[in-house]
């Protein structure tokens, strides 16, 4: 391989989906690129690469971020959670199960982002209304489903917490 530019490389160490992972990065690499290309985390998708669509949402220290807008070097020693991190073998989370039952999945390209954001919403341990969830997920685009079933899935799991 040919060396890309002359930027110095750094060693990045993160807790990715509960595991310590280390890789060499360049200072201009985004978290999105490092996740997809270095760590082979393919559930994190991209549709615009400039922060408009929200498809690349991951949890960074348990908060949702658009990974295309985060420089990888800023995430040193941080924890990162993606869909790979909430699924263990074939045991689905309640939210994943709700997505399937409600038909919240069509092409699936945005599904990882909505699941991760939904996971965050549910982890708030706070009861939200339909329109609050509608507002909270407004930052992620879906072109297939019309959003309704995604909102309903998150709402159902959220409501269950307070039963």
């Amino acid at each position: 391989m040919i060396k890309e530019g002359t930027r110095p490389t750094k060693t990045l160490s993160v807790i990715l989906n509960g595991q310590k992972r280390v890789t060499e990065i360049q200072s201009n690499e985004t978290l999105l690129d490092v996740l997809r290309n270095k760590f082979q985390i393919k559930s994190v998708k991209a549709a615009c690469w400039v922060g408009d669509c929200g498809i690349c949402t991951v949890l960074l220290d348990e908060k949702p971020v658009k990974s295309c807008l985060v420089l990888a070097q800023e995430t040193m020693n941080c924890t990162i959670t993606t869909v790979e991190g909430i699924t263990h073998n074939d045991k689905l989370t309640e939210l994943q199960d709700a997505f399937i039952r409600h038909g919240a999945v069509q092409c699936g390209y945005c599904t990882g982002a909505f699941l991760i954001l939904g996971h965050y919403i549910i982890n708030q341990q706070q009861r939200f209304t339909f329109s609050e969830i509608q507002e909270m997920i407004n930052g992620i685009i879906c072109r297939c489903t019309g959003y309704l079933q995604i909102i309903e899935s998150i709402l159902e799991v959220n409501e269950k917490q307070f039963r």
Partner: peptide, 23 residues
């Protein structure tokens, strides 16, 4: 009947492969 999509599990688990993922 409303049986679940054949690909639903693959898609919610982040396993579904798209052309963009092929490297």
């Amino acid at each position: 009947k409303s049986v679940a999509r054949k690909d639903a599990k693959e898609k919610v688990s982040g396993l579904a492969e798209y052309a963009v993922d092929i490297d």
